[in-house]
Design a binder for these strands. Structure first.
Lengths: 334, 334
DNA sequence: AATCCGATTGGAAACGTTTCCAACTCCGCC
DNA sequence: GGCGGAGTTGGAAACGTTTCCAATCGGATT
């Protein structure tokens, strides 16, 4: 705790050679085998390891990437973070976690902080977006990859998914099972995911032959909010299927169904979205639309690696298709 | 993306004053109001913001803290990370997430990497510990706070919990409910948590009046491993209570009970440990021993703040008491 | 035997910041 | 009117690294 770390200069002195040669021997190229041996020995004796800050200053590279989301505790983001870490760590990059807050303004603030140059890039999943945020991302001094909305037209790299289409897939699945009275349980409409899922539901609602369509908006994307909103929805009666905008809302919905003494999936089939571990182990296991969190995280990290290598590399947009995972909550696979 | 960031020297030139004065005007003290005004204006015009690397090099401070665990996806660690982030961020510290791997050796490696000075400290929760790791922690060039095992005697700061006592509390709770045939479902015994929980169970098993005591060890701390181990345990018959070493194992156990056509909690009461969100929303909601993940994360972060301020501050050990959260899976609060 | 070329080495600058120290100005006081 | 001191300012060094450039040293070729 107290001993001061050895510096490259000390290694050089110990080895009796110049600073330049020492650096070359340890990291660079163009040093003779004898020199390498000699310097290595000196470095080992002193327990030397290169200072990350000094190196960063000289190289203009931090070997750090920020991952910024509204809530680090959200299972979806956790999955992404794990995937991002798995891709970046082998390449020598560290991952810095940050919180965007839940407004577009606070997210903009965070993107602006990139100006202080503490990372080589940022992967961000904004909960809410506005023009100022878009502009800030475009002007950022380091590459930014957005997970969420596709921003093709603006020269911004993004990894998006078709959550609207995912809702469509869920509704069609229920329809195929013979469910004709379907309720939609969404989260806040002014969020990027909430808006997209609403579009998806509105589109598919017109396209299927349903006897009844209803919907309710939860205060946020949590189990508790889902429970409350589902109670309101079910109180209006007559539904045999519930489509929830994410797994947490779906679990709240299942609870609400059971409160009424009815069962899932027999009386009411329920679908979630995000395909979380939570939904997989829940009983009944949750039919859920996977938006490929892990895959999206990996894709974002790979784009980041390219951009970090070559900052002038063209922006890329990747779309990960949604995939319906059928499980017990709609009477599917046991 | 392309414009190069303004440097302090450029601000100085623009303002027509020296570098020293510019620095003082922006961050330090001892500058006249007129000077501050002038420099501020120039900085604003250039959109200047201080370079984190240059500043770090000079100040010998990175304003970063590492959080290292075996699996960032584990809900317990996620909770800790969130708590740590919440405490540190307001103080201007960034959180770098790292993976210890699951051996003592790989953890030692990670602690050793602190020598490159990329963080001001590390909060680590080792899955497995050995003497070399302990020594490495003691010799680390920056403060290290261990979450997990208490290491009072060695001058290492730690935040621990009495998970052994927590298992005891769970067993006594079941005993008080009249359950006399109790099975213990543990994770790998060579891990720090596995070993502690085993000690706890062995201690309490002798102390209660039980008709039958049995146990099984799962391959790891997951739902799947829990399911398999619980099947083996239940196959030997005759149990009316299962104590699991964490919530994931407990959920696997509930599944195993139901496979046999028996119900929780009527036929078999089940307890978990860690008090995760997962257990709270599961049905039946899980009686679980809270080890205060959030509280431990917060405590570790607070210790880190003190140590970062004053590296010679004495090591601290904090213990967070376990707390039994009674819910449906033992027939408790509905 | 003189020259050239490649391989290796060392000196020095540069990255962007903070802060020590000396110098300067201006004021009040003796 | 000179002197001391408080209040500001600028010059320069320092943090630890990498790399450009010039210099040196062999050995091989003419």
């Amino acid at each position: 705790m107290t001993s001061t770390r050895a510096t490259l200069l000390q290694v050089a002195e110990r080895a009796g050679v110049s600073l330049a040669s020492t650096s070359r021997a340890l990291h660079g190229s163009g040093a003779s085998p004898a020199m390498v041996e000699r310097v290595r020995a000196a470095a080992a004796e002193l327990g030397y390891s290169a200072d990350a800050i000094g190196r960063s200053l000289r190289l203009k590279k931090t070997f750090q990437v920020a991952f910024a989301v509204a809530d680090i505790g959200n299972p979806v983001y956790v999955e992404m973070m794990r995937a991002i870490h798995e891709v970046l760590a082998p390449h020598g990059y560290r991952v810095v976690v940050m919180s965007t807050g839940d407004t577009a303004t606070s997210t903009t603030e965070l993107v602006r902080s990139l100006n202080s140059g503490f990372v080589d890039g940022m992967i961000v999943s904004p909960l809410r977006t506005d023009d100022r945020l878009i502009r800030e991302i475009q002007q950022a001094p380091v590459p930014v990859v957005v997970i969420g909305r596709a921003l093709d037209d603006r020269g911004i790299s993004s990894v998006s998914t078709d959550s609207a289409g995912g809702i469509g897939a869920a509704v069609r699945h229920l329809h195929a099972l013979g469910r004709r009275r379907v309720g939609f349980l969404n989260g806040p409409l002014d969020t990027t995911p909430g808006a997209a899922r609403q579009r998806g539901f509105d589109a598919v609602a017109g396209e299927i032959a349903a006897e009844r369509v209803d919907q309710e908006v939860a205060g946020d994307f949590t189990v508790t909010a889902g429970l409350e909103a589902a109670r309101r929805l079910l109180a209006r009666g007559g539904l045999d299927a519930l489509v929830a905008a994410n797994d947490l809302l779906a679990i709240g919905a299942i609870r609400a169904v059971r409160e009424l003494g009815r069962s899932v999936p027999e009386d009411v089939a329920v679908t979630g979205m995000d395909d979380t571990e939570l939904g997989r182990v829940f009983q009944p296991s949750l039919t859920s639309v996977s938006l490929g969190s892990t895959e999206r995280g990996r894709a974002a990290a790979r784009i980041m690696l390219q951009l970090a290598d070559d900052p002038d590399h063209a922006a890329q947009q990747i779309t990960v298709g949604p995939e319906l995972m059928v499980r017990e909550s709609t009477g599917g696979a046991r």
